[in-house]
Computed example of a mutant assay.
Amino acid sequence: MEKNQRRRIVSTIMLSPVKSQRINLTLNGQECTLRLTQHESALYLDLTVKGIPVVQGVPCLHGTRLVRYAWLGFTGDLFFVDTQGQEDPRWHGLGSRWFLFYEDGNVQQKNA
């Protein structure tokens, strides 16, 4: 690896197969709260850092970055992966079929 190259770190965020959940965790030194809620149309994400909203009501889609823009005040990004195809995540398969990943940081999960 060259001197100025940065390693890409991808961490798995552990989820439960429930329709609504709130997770408090530290991502790359950022005190975050993730809220996932299943509606009829899609699974949606809210993300706050130190209580300040970063994104709200973002539809969770397979392989799509959920934050996207650094100017929103979040370092790194989140994305879902379908391990059995290319479908968008649904609550019943969270943690078994669909996994949420954080790119560019370390995850230290806390009890909610």
Rank of each mutant, 00 (worst) to 15 (best):
Q30R: 02
W71G: 07
L45H: 02
N4L: 15
R35Y: 00
M1I: 15
G51Y: 10
E103S: 11
K19W: 00
L27W: 01
L47E: 07
L47R: 00
L72M: 12
A112P: 15
L61W: 01
H39P: 00
G57R: 11
N4K: 14
D104Y: 10
H62L: 07
A112Y: 13
G73C: 10
K3R: 15
L66D: 05
L66F: 05
T12F: 07
L25R: 07
F80I: 06
F99G: 00
G73I: 11
I52M: 09
G95K: 04
K110V: 09
K110I: 06
H92P: 08
V10T: 15
G105W: 08
S41D: 12
A112N: 15
S16Q: 14
G105P: 10
N4I: 12
S96I: 06
D104Q: 13
K3D: 15
R35V: 09
T26C: 03
L15P: 00
P53L: 07
Q108T: 11
K3L: 15
S41E: 13
E87H: 13
E87M: 12
Q56L: 13
Q84L: 09
T75S: 10
M14G: 02
Q30K: 05
V58C: 08
S16R: 11
L66G: 03
D77P: 06
Q109E: 13
L36S: 00
Q109W: 04
S11V: 05
P89Y: 01
S96W: 04
L47T: 01
F80T: 01
R7H: 00
R22D: 08
C60N: 03
V54A: 01
E2N: 15
K19F: 00
N24A: 11
C60A: 08
Q56S: 12
R35E: 13
F101Y: 14
N111R: 12
R90M: 02
K3S: 15
V55R: 08
S41T: 12
W98P: 00
H92M: 12
D82K: 02
N106S: 09
R97V: 08
W91Y: 15
V49K: 10
A112I: 14
H62Q: 09
Q21M: 04
L72S: 06
W71A: 12
Q56Y: 02
A42H: 10
G85L: 12
L61T: 10
V81S: 06
Q21K: 05
C60G: 05
V58G: 06
M1S: 14
Y44E: 05
Q38V: 04
I13G: 05
V54C: 03
T64P: 00
L72K: 15
T37S: 09
Y44H: 13
V81Y: 05
V55G: 03
R6H: 03
N28E: 07
E103G: 07
G29H: 13
L66S: 02
M14K: 14
T26D: 06
Q5I: 12
